[in-house]
Design a protein around this nucleic acid. Structure first.
Lengths: 196, 196
DNA sequence: TCCATTTATTAACATATGTTAATGCCCCTC
DNA sequence: GAGGGGCATTAACATATGTTAATAAATGGA
């Protein structure tokens, strides 16, 4: 069983590493938190549905993927503990989710009610800056990632994946990695076998 | 010859359409503006160089592209008048640019000194919110765009390009569009000819 | 107006990647 | 320990796309 206070503390540390909070802000903020658990293959957040919470991953692995009109899936990102598998676009736009967040293993999360969180911006202006900084950081990360995915071959991106996600390839099926690389599992298998 | 005041006014209107400015904010902000002109093929902003200005495009067409280690170019976005061909990541991170902004025609711009702009955040807190909202809007746009590019075929994305950029295909070489679509000019030519 | 350059098209060919299918492995459960 | 499901690998084949090259068309400068 998870200890609320101890798990919330991990979330607080992750937030403070981005931007120091004003006194009192954490106390108000922690009122908006809940612990959640997901079984393998559950959806944290689903295409077509509204989103309400920012999500901090305590334990497990989550993938984000798109689906095209034929139902084919395209993995976009993998999340491991300490990351934020949060449907940011849906939260910001108030529109239904366009992408899916799915647990690839059993998962534990801390979740933050985003609408209530935004109301705190008035009381704690630094939370507005905090949100801006999060968006800046995510924007920079996304641009670096996009450049790499576009300018490299699938084989090069596979190598980078292995470096950036040590151990992850043991924990998830290869076809998820292939989808992330934009190739078929067969092609990934060829790349792997041609490595020696 | 361009009339400074009239051109700056276009910039103000574009900003106000995002978020209403506090009284006085525009007066201080307009002190930080300059008019610039670029010749066809000039770079507004270049890989490896630092970035200093946010850019508003008055006239002309700009492309953003990445280069891989072999020098091959990959177009990412086209900008037309009223848009902001701004090296956001370089401005936010303070690190050298990873991507290139190039004029595809002669261009006129209004440019805003970003470091000085950020200093105004203290005097006008709403500019901090403004920046957050810009990032939110850009994030949402980018996600929609990415989903489409990944889940559609090149032929479908070509159709979408034509709808979203009416008239643009008459103004720029097809090989730039091909690069944007992630295919060769030859392949784009085949797609075009197979349309009837 | 003419010439040179750039760009688009087309064809023939090469190649990488997808498709289908068969095989075998691994792991899980009973 | 046996059976079954999920997954990775491999092979044979199909196909889409890239490559090279030749030609034609459009563009821009002198």
């Amino acid at each position: 069983m998870l200890d609320r206070e101890r798990e919330f503390e991990k979330f607080r540390i992750a937030i403070e590493s981005v931007c120091h909070l004003q006194p009192g802000a954490w106390d108000d903020l922690s009122e908006l938190l809940t612990l959640k658990q997901y079984k393998k293959n559950d959806y944290l957040s689903r295409e077509g549905e509204m989103a309400y919470n920012a999500v901090f991953l305590l334990d497990g692995i989550v993938r984000v993927f798109y689906r095209n009109k034929d139902g084919a899936e395209y993995n976009k990102t993998f999340f491991v503990p300490g990351m934020f598998p949060t449907p940011l676009t849906a939260l910001l736009s108030g529109a239904p989710n366009l992408i899916n967040f799915q647990a690839l293993t059993d998962c534990d999360t801390v979740e933050l009610n985003f609408a209530e969180f935004k109301k705190l911006f008035k009381k704690y202006p630094s939370l507005d800056s905090f949100m801006r900084i999060v968006l800046e950081i995510e924007w920079i990360k996304k641009e670096r990632h996009d450049i790499r995915m576009v300018t490299n071959s699938a084989a090069e991106n596979y190598e980078i994946f292995l470096e950036e996600h040590p151990g992850l390839e043991q924990q998830i099926p290869q076809y998820h990695i292939a989808s992330y690389l934009g190739i078929t599992p067969i092609q990934l298998s060829r790349i792997r076998s041609s490595k020696q």
